[in-house]
Write a protein that binds this DNA or RNA. Structure first.
Length: 401
RNA sequence: GGAGAGAUUCCCGAGCGGUCAAAGGGGGCAGACUGUAAAUCUGCUGGCUGAUGUCUUCGUAGGUUCGAAUCCUACUCUCUCCA
């Protein structure tokens, strides 16, 4: 049995804030005294439940709580999803239909239980209670918040300054989210650092409704594989946990060096002191690539198997060190008419490029190889032969069948 | 309700009635160098095409004009100020 100190240190690994300070310890003590599990809340957007490495950070934290006997309460934002969240400027997200929500929920569950223990997980749809709120309830809820405080938030402040429209209902979002905490009687809520305000609001609203306020734990946002913007599907810089081992491995190998240890700390169970050693070794001049391999292998192993991770490593070596070819080159079936076709048309026809213009651009840039021979003439007449290897840029391969 | 400002290509942002497929930056793609890293350098960055050109693009719909992103009208949306 671990003592309280050890538990606290494991639970706070990677956390940015635990607010109010010291409260987590109190909650843990209360749970022990009352012999009941803590209810740890995490919200997810119903519109795109595609779980990438960034989102595994809070999920893994939740798992940690489960290991210590507590209950994970996942809030699936079907209510908010139905209203349609206007994120950007001109894009008002389409409202989700009931079927879409159902479908998303199904996919979500599948992925989430790759990490969480289903026995200790409670999945709730916030429509359950939000749908039932009357206008009076909503007014009462809104009266707990002032416009000035809303506008203080970075997110709104910037948009307001830049003249980007803010719809009124966007102000309601944090309130509904906060109300979720009331509804599920959360003891703790997890979220990214960008959620700090919302999470704290949850605490306040709980107190307004006569409940003990939740403890807020914020976790860092993980930069995507481009190393700058936060990991997100819309930036196409994500590593999805349901992607193929090869993809996961490859993507992780392309993250910038300075993120290696951050990824380790947040997305794996590699012990913190080991990570510190790695850091030191890299500073002393060891090749960061080797540590990246450790990271990539660890993660592939977490979501697949040890064998897969070994295979990925070997394949990676073969492709990039020895400039060999990947294992699974997609085959393209060419038809008999494909004789002496213009190469640009060919590339477009088989979706190797978006357009013929893109094809000629790549050809001009010396990015096209057939059987390892650079083709730099965009008027090249191509007659595909079975077994030809076509390489477009660094990453796209195809084999003629 | 009133007054003003604005909507440009993936994003930000220039843009005299013709020489504008539209400056510049960001992002992206490709190449060199590497460790499929970072940094740096180079090229490209609407579609189709025999590269010559051609078609579609500047909030939407009309109009003026030989010719419009640029002028006019209406509409839609946004912002700011006043009440």
């Amino acid at each position: 049995m671990k003592n309280l100190k050890e538990i606290l240190s494991e639970l706070s690994r990677g956390c940015v804030d635990i607010l109010p300070e010291g409260e987590l310890e109190k909650k843990l003590l209360i749970a022990k005294r009352e012999n009941r599990p803590l209810r740890v809340k995490l919200g997810i957007d119903a519109s795109g439940p595609y779980i990438h490495l960034g989102f595994t950070i809070p999920l893994r934290k939740l798992k940690k709580f489960q290991e210590f006997g507590h209950t994970a309460v996942l809030i699936f934002g079907d209510f908010t999803g139905k209203i349609g969240d206007p994120t950007g400027k001109n894009k008002t997200r389409p409202q989700l239909s009931d079927e879409e929500i159902k479908e998303n929920l199904k996919n979500y569950k599948e992925q989430v239980f790759k990490i969480l223990d289903p026995q200790k997980t409670e999945i709730r749809l916030n429509g359950e209670w939000s749908d039932k709120l009357s206008p009076q309830d909503i007014i009462k809820l809104s009266s707990k918040m002032t416009v000035a405080r809303m506008l203080e938030r970075d997110y709104f402040e910037q948009r307001y300054k830049n003249g980007v429209p803010i719809s009124l209902h966007e102000f309601l979002y944090p309130l509904f989210q906060a109300y979720d905490s009331v509804a599920v009687k959360a003891d703790i809520e997890l979220g990214g650092t960008d959620q700090k305000f919302n999470l704290l609001l949850g605490r306040e609203i709980q107190e307004e409704y006569g409940l003990p306020g939740q403890v807020v734990m914020t976790l860092p946002l993980l930069e995507g594989i481009d190393g700058t913007r936060k990991m997100s599907k819309s930036y196409d810089n994500y590593v999805g946990i349901t992607e193929s081992p090869t993809q996961i491995f490859g993507k992780l190998m392309s993250i910038p060096d300075n993120l290696i240890t951050k990824y380790m700390l947040l997305t794996t169970d590699i012990p913190e002191d080991r990570i510190k050693e790695f850091e030191k070794e890299m500073k002393e001049g060891k090749n960061p690539k080797d540590y990246k391999v450790i990271l990539a292998k660890t993660i592939v192993q977490m979501y697949y198997t040890k064998e897969e991770s070994d295979r990925c490593e070997e394949e990676f070596k073969r492709i990039f060190k020895e400039k060999g070819l990947p294992d699974n080159i997609p085959l393209i079936k060419v038809s008999k008419e494909d004789k002496n076709v213009k190469i640009t048309n060919f590339l477009k026809k088989y979706k190797l490029t978006e357009s013929t213009s893109e094809a000629s651009r790549i050809i001009k840039g010396r990015g096209l190889r057939i059987n390892n021979v650079v083709i730099d003439d965009f008027n090249f007449q191509y007659t595909p032969q079975k077994g030809d290897i076509i390489q477009v840029g660094k990453k796209k391969f195809a084999k003629v069948d």
